[in-house]
Every structure is written in C-alpha cells, then in structure tokens.
Design a protein around this nucleic acid. Structure first.
Lengths: 233, 233
DNA sequence: GCGGCGTATTATGCATACAAAATTCTCCTT
DNA sequence: AAGGAGAATTTTGTATGCATAATACGCCGC
C-alpha cells in the first residue's frame, strides 16, 4: 500500500541538492527497520519518550510514524496506552504465509507474461549469486539474495499495487525469520526449489511457476513455524 | 492490515460505560468514509485547517489519521505540501482488481475448507436478499448486499490477515465503483455469476469456486474500467 | 493584456504545553 | 507479609505555538 514514504530513490549524483528529508520519513524508516530486524521485539511497548531520545526528535514525528506503522500492521495501537510491536503468533504467521503464497503465485503468473528479458536476466544473476552463498554456507547473504529474488520477481510483474502489498506482508514475516535456523537438508531443498522456479520463469511457464512458488512458500512456512516451536497443523 | 482502529465492536448493552473513543479513531473513520464514498474526490487536496473545522478537532488527530490513511493507500503524502486523496487511475484500478481477484480466489479455496455451515447459510441468505434487490431494480441496496457477500466470504476463511488485506484494497476499489453505471445486461450477468458462486460454495467445490470468483472479479473490473471511460486492454 | 519578479499570506512540519488517563509507589490495614 | 486504597509520577492524547516551505497576490515592465 504505502507508496510514498519508503521509496526514497537515493540518487547518487554529487550535486543532489540534498532535498531535506522529512523527519517523519526518517523516523518511520528507522522504526520499521528496528521492528523488522527484531531489535524492537514483538510485544514490546513503544515508549514515546524513549523513542524520541533515541531518534533525536520530538514526539510529533514519532507519533505520526507509529500511526503509519499501525496501518501497516507492524505495531498495534492500544487506546490510551500507546502502542506495542505487533506480537508474532503461530496463527498470524501461518495466515501471512498462506497469503504470501497466493501473492507470489499471482506474481509468477503475471511475471511470465509481463517480465522483461532484462528482469529475468537480473533474477537469474541473483540466483547464481545466491547459489554461491549457499555453496559457501553464508547464511545471511544467502537470505539477502533470496529476498531480492522474490522481490524482483514480484516487481517484474509491473503491478505496483501487488508489489506494495507484498512488501508490507513480507516485512512482517521477516520478523519471524531471524529465528529460522535452517538445517542443511532444508536449505539444500530450498535451493533446489529455487532452481526449478528460475527454470520455469525462464521458460515463462505460467502454469508451472505459480504452483512452484506456492509450494516453496509452503515449505518456508513449515521452517518458520518449526522455529516458532510449534507443530504446523 | 490495520486491525485496531476500525474494529469498534459497537456493543449494544444499555450500560456500556461509553468507553470514550479516541479522537484519532473518530477522525480516521470519518475521513475514510468521506474518501471511500467519494465526498472527498480523488486528487483533491486535504487542507488540515478545513478538516479541523469540519471535524471539530485540532490538527494533531487529523494529521495522525492522515498518516494512517497514507499507509492504507487512500491518501498520498506530498512532502512539504500536505496530502491529497489518492487519484484513481486506470492502471491502479486494473492492478487492484487483479490483486482482488487473486485474494478472492484464495478466499474461495479456503472457504470451501474452513467456512462453517452457518457462514454459508448466512451468505446464502444475503444472496437471496440481493436477488430481491436485483428483481426490484434497487441498485444501491444491491451493491450493499453484494459487498456483504464478498466480505462474508473472505471472513469465513478464518484468515484474519487475508480479510484485512481484502478490506483495505476493497476500500480503494469502492471509490471507483460509484460511477459504475451498470447496464441491465451486465447486471443480470453478474447475478448469474453470483448464483454459480453460491452453488459452488454450498457444494464446497474448492476447485471451481476460485475460478468463478476470479472470473467474476474480472468482469467487475471491465465494468469499472468502462465507466472510467477507458478501453480495458 | 500577458508574463515575471518580489512580497504577503497561508499551509505545513516540528516542537512544546497542558489535561486526562494509566501506572507506579507509598503507606496503611489486616 | 500480603493486599489494597490513595497519592505521586509517568505517559499518553490533544491543542497550540513557531519556523519554514509553498502558494497567492500585486506590481511592474513589456
């Protein structure tokens, strides 16, 4: 959904007039990172005064950013009692993965039709980069590539609304993922799935790709739910 | 996404202590209605002072509500220039319907598994009520029933995340719909589709229902795009 | 009459002030 | 010592103040 406050397009020209970014945007981005990366853990209370000191602003931008994040679902508003980081429950994780599965399946279908050859080439490059990290056992970089691939795929559909919705949901799920202690076996399996996904995309197989993606997401869900220490169904 | 600020659960007991609603909530709800119902037309500037007078508050709650709606996508923030009601373009309408189609398809699939018999009975009742309005040519009540049916279907999946995402997107689309000047022919056709949808739901036909819903949404899209005065592809 | 420049006005963004609600702490009772 | 009433403190929600960016207006030249 949110279209403005996050696309900052960090232009690299030396003479950018340094468009003075709005404070709310700054705070919003920073808060979101803190939450997604788990530094502000699920369930913790957001104390405005503390956040103000940490972010060096007054309460106004902080409060406005919190409202934004509330709509995004990353924080929950408790009337007269401020806000907390939205707790992660087995139920919501499961719900979100089901939804993400459907979104990625749609993305796969659309990508087969709408993605440019350049889009696919870029995803292919990311895929091989990811394989390298897998081979070296570099988990964090692997995850980054992985995320990039999925995001690029969704973006290659040309459907910005889809991409925005995906990003928002993905933010939530990523919070849960940092605990996902991938076994080598599962990891290898995920990589295999990615290979099939890439192949289907290159062949623009609009029937197969959605199914592969949905299955892939289903497996991701199992991993995360396992990490949450709960039986998945 | 947004889970708190809209579920107000208007308890009907005579002795509800009248929990003093937060002003932001009030403003948020009111603003959202104004936008969804088109009273604040797409593209118009949101002047804080004017809104404050209209809603009898200070700027703070208004500004916070606007941030919330920005994340929801109903308004766009223009740095240093306030906010406008998100314009409706052919592109975004098309994008949203594609997305809605996938969401409802997913909902159909899940509903066939998870919906209770009571859920289905309720949808069935709404369906017949809708038929009545159709027979009498009562367009507005027809639309209300229609909305209700789709919403109930999505809710009957038991996937709250899905339902929230659906609601947000649907809000956008509804803004475009008030212009949809349904021809009798198209109207009849839509009703036929709804009949098939209901039948498939009752039979819990998890293979057919998603396809029907997706097709139905596709047709809705055509109607709306037509009304937007633009060729759909 | 039209266009452009400089000023006046307005609107926005951020900070702060104030009131009410929630929380914490204290101290008393049992 | 545990529990609870009540005051003190903190925190939130809302209003307002102030600085700056954007806009509107008027004036002048052409």
């Amino acid at each position: 959904m949110n279209q403005d406050l996050q696309s900052v397009s960090p232009s690299m020209s030396a003479e950018t007039v340094a468009e003075p970014r709005l404070l709310v945007e700054e705070v919003l981005e920073r808060l979101r990172d803190l939450i997604v990366q788990g530094e502000l853990a699920p369930g913790v209370k957001l104390n405005e005064r503390v956040l103000c000191e940490r972010l060096r602003t007054s309460r106004t931008p902080v409060r406005e950013a919190i409202k934004f994040l509330a709509s995004e679902g990353l924080v929950e508003l408790l009337p007269n009692r401020g806000a907390i980081v939205t707790p992660i429950t087995v139920t919501t994780v499961r719900e979100m993965f089901v939804l993400l599965g459907a979104l990625e399946a749609l993305a796969g279908e659309l990508a087969c039709v709408n993605a440019s050859d350049a889009d696919i080439a870029e995803i292919r490059a990311l895929h091989y980069q990811m394989l390298a990290h897998h081979a070296r056992g570099e988990l964090a970089p692997y995850f980054r590539c992985n995320q990039q691939i999925h995001l690029r795929l969704v973006e290659s559909t040309g459907n910005a609304t889809l991409a925005n919705t995906y990003r928002a949901l993905n933010g939530h799920v990523r919070r849960a993922r940092y605990m996902a202690n991938l076994s080598r076996e599962r990891w290898d399996h995920a990589v295999e799935e990615h290979q099939k996904i890439l192949d289907a995309l290159i062949r623009r197989d609009g029937a197969l790709l959605p199914a592969l993606l949905r299955g892939h997401l289903g497996n991701k869900m199992l991993v995360v739910l396992e990490a949450l220490g709960e039986q998945a169904d």
